[in-house]
């Protein structure tokens, strides 16, 4: 997995934080940190069993932390996690499939219709959590984030389905999944289970804006 990070943004953000803290006067409201817009490429989300194998789905989820903008193996410091086409959130309870991570945060998910740019706030959205009866982002073709084209055997992220997350500790992020295939090349099923997605994360706790 290669997580492309715009170092500049982070550096600027760090400098900015440093700068503001140096000059803060006691009566000044601190200027909020800018939102972080990132592209994550080829996040590998393997799975055992499942569709067509006759075996139950299993295998560890690949966890992602918006705060660091990176994949993580931490059992607590994660927001969302991927296994095959399934996406879990670190909020609620386990749904009962094999090898699911324990939920210990308050993350939630909301599916919003629109273009990525048109979603500029998480305000007013209802966030679902994983429960014993299913994932916050429903699984199956045409139910959640993807559509399965069985003629061509391709998983396609449904255009216009944007995912908005509340992170485990109350920040907000919006996500658009661009591809389920390695290097966004869906010409062979072997490339599958590699997520590429855009996200915008607001590092200020409780702030719902994505601008």
């Amino acid at each position: 997995m290669t997580t492309m990070k715009t170092l500049q943004t982070l550096t600027l953000a760090v400098l900015f934080i440093g700068f503001t803290s140096c000059t803060s006067d006691d009566d000044n409201t601190p200027t909020p940190d800018p939102v972080q817009a990132e592209l994550v490429s080829n996040l590998f989300a393997p799975q055992t069993g499942g569709q067509g194998t006759g075996q139950d789905e299993g295998g560890p989820f690949t966890k992602f932390d918006f705060k660091t903008g990176a994949e993580t193996t931490s059992d607590t410091e994660w927001d969302i996690a991927f296994r095959g086409t399934t996406i879990a959130v670190n909020g609620g309870t386990t749904t009962g499939t094999n090898d699911e991570p324990t939920r210990n945060g308050d993350a939630g998910a909301s599916i919003v219709t629109g273009t990525f740019d048109s979603i500029n706030t998480a305000d007013g959205l209802t966030f679902a959590q994983d429960t014993a009866s299913g994932f916050a982002i429903p699984t199956g073709s045409d139910n959640g984030w993807y559509n399965y084209d069985f003629m061509n055997n391709i998983i396609m992220p449904i255009p216009g389905k944007m995912l908005v997350f509340r992170t485990r500790d109350g920040n907000y992020a919006k996500v658009e999944i661009l591809s389920y295939y390695k290097d966004q090349d869906n010409s062979t099923p072997a490339n599958g289970r590699h997520y590429t997605f855009n996200y915008v994360y607001n590092p200020n706790a409780g702030e719902t804006s994505f601008e």
């Binding site: 219709t113 629109g114 273009t115 990525f116 048109s118 992220p157 255009p159 216009g160 944007m162 658009e176 661009l178 591809s179 966004q184 590429t196 855009n198």
Partner: peptide, 15 residues
């Protein structure tokens, strides 16, 4: 504005 597609160049959603 309720129908979307993916721009083949970027794979991003467009209306």
């Amino acid at each position: 504005g309720q129908v979307f597609a993916r721009d083949p160049a970027t794979n991003q959603t467009v209306a």
